[in-house]
Amino acid sequence: MSIDDILRELREDRVHGASWYFLKGIEVIRIAIERGLEPSDIKALLNELRGVRPGMASIMNLADIIERSLNIGLDLNNVINRLRDWYDSASKRLLTQLDRFPIMCGSKAITISYSSAVKAALSRWGKCIDVLYVMESRPGNEVIQAISDYSNYVGNVVPIPDSAIAHFMRNVNYVISGADGLYSDGYFLNKVGTEPLFIVAHRFDVNTIVIAESYKAVSGCVGEVYMVDFHIDNQGVQVPLFDEVPLELIDYLITDLNIIKKPKPENIENLRELLINNVLNPSG
């Protein structure tokens, strides 16, 4: 695929999350390097990537690391290889952390949207979860992919209307969510509908779990949130694709590096620094 083809795919996608965008972004930069693009052209390309999903942490980190590498004259091939290695090793480390978490057998859980991190969690916890409720997660149709993939690990996966979460919350033990970004300003970013899900969970004293790899940790804030058109009966309105959910609503943050109870902004900063140091200064 060409760079333009991949950028178009990224803009039009309505299913995948931050991990997929991270890999696709790496692919875009690798093609740019292979084609011998000048540093100024690569920097312009980075701005295009940032604009694909404004505020998505994995894209922000990728673009920031590549721009820093250009500014200090690092070999971009080596940087891209280390980013890919970090992605691969993060996936393996995340499974180790998930195995450490004491999920209660015979439990019920609610999740929203589709997340590769949640899929990884279910691959380890699925035998202990009797019922998994999956919100319809509108706007978008990623719930179809979620039900298909999650059913490989949980015997009873049940789609529910977004408006019915309070009813089902009365009988669940966990809310499990991925994250498109962890921000040191004090919140995480995920599919719109996640904030009311977590608020209702706390209303009913249900444990909330967020699962996210370290390359989704960003210093600062999200800035602009990506907006989409939503239509009901020929009436249209623009809605944000993501919610900014306060960290204080998270009981457990599970990353590839650690399990953090009641995460705070400094925890996000630490995750971000570990990523930057390991990619830009691997021997440091």
Score class of each variant (00 low, 15 high):
229 D>M: 11
247 L>R: 11
220 G>W: 11
277 N>K: 11
226 Y>T: 07
214 S>D: 13
211 I>S: 09
201 A>R: 07
201 A>D: 09
211 I>W: 06
197 L>P: 09
240 P>G: 10
283 S>K: 07
247 L>G: 11
224 E>G: 00
281 N>D: 07
189 L>M: 15
251 D>S: 14
204 F>L: 08
248 E>S: 15
225 V>W: 00
245 V>F: 04
270 N>V: 03
219 S>E: 15
208 T>E: 03
192 V>E: 03
195 E>Y: 15
283 S>A: 08
270 N>E: 13
215 Y>M: 10
259 I>A: 00
282 P>C: 02
223 G>Y: 05
275 L>E: 07
257 L>P: 00
249 L>K: 05
199 I>A: 12
241 L>S: 10
254 I>L: 08
225 V>T: 14
281 N>C: 02
192 V>F: 14
256 D>N: 14
270 N>W: 04
225 V>H: 00
210 V>P: 04
186 G>T: 09
208 T>N: 06
284 G>Q: 04
218 V>I: 08
204 F>Y: 15
255 T>S: 11
258 N>C: 03
281 N>L: 10
241 L>K: 13
199 I>L: 15
219 S>Y: 13
196 P>K: 09
207 N>M: 13
228 V>P: 00
253 L>M: 12
206 V>S: 06
219 S>L: 14
273 E>Q: 06
246 P>E: 10
238 Q>W: 12
262 K>F: 04
195 E>V: 08
215 Y>D: 07
272 R>V: 01
194 T>P: 07
186 G>E: 07
192 V>D: 01
282 P>A: 03
224 E>V: 12
237 V>C: 12
219 S>P: 01
284 G>N: 06
218 V>H: 12
240 P>H: 09
229 D>C: 05
242 F>S: 10
186 G>A: 06
188 F>W: 05
210 V>F: 08
195 E>P: 00
213 E>M: 13
206 V>Y: 09
266 E>L: 07
239 V>S: 09
220 G>D: 11
223 G>K: 04
235 Q>T: 15
206 V>I: 15
189 L>W: 00
219 S>D: 15
194 T>R: 08
193 G>H: 03
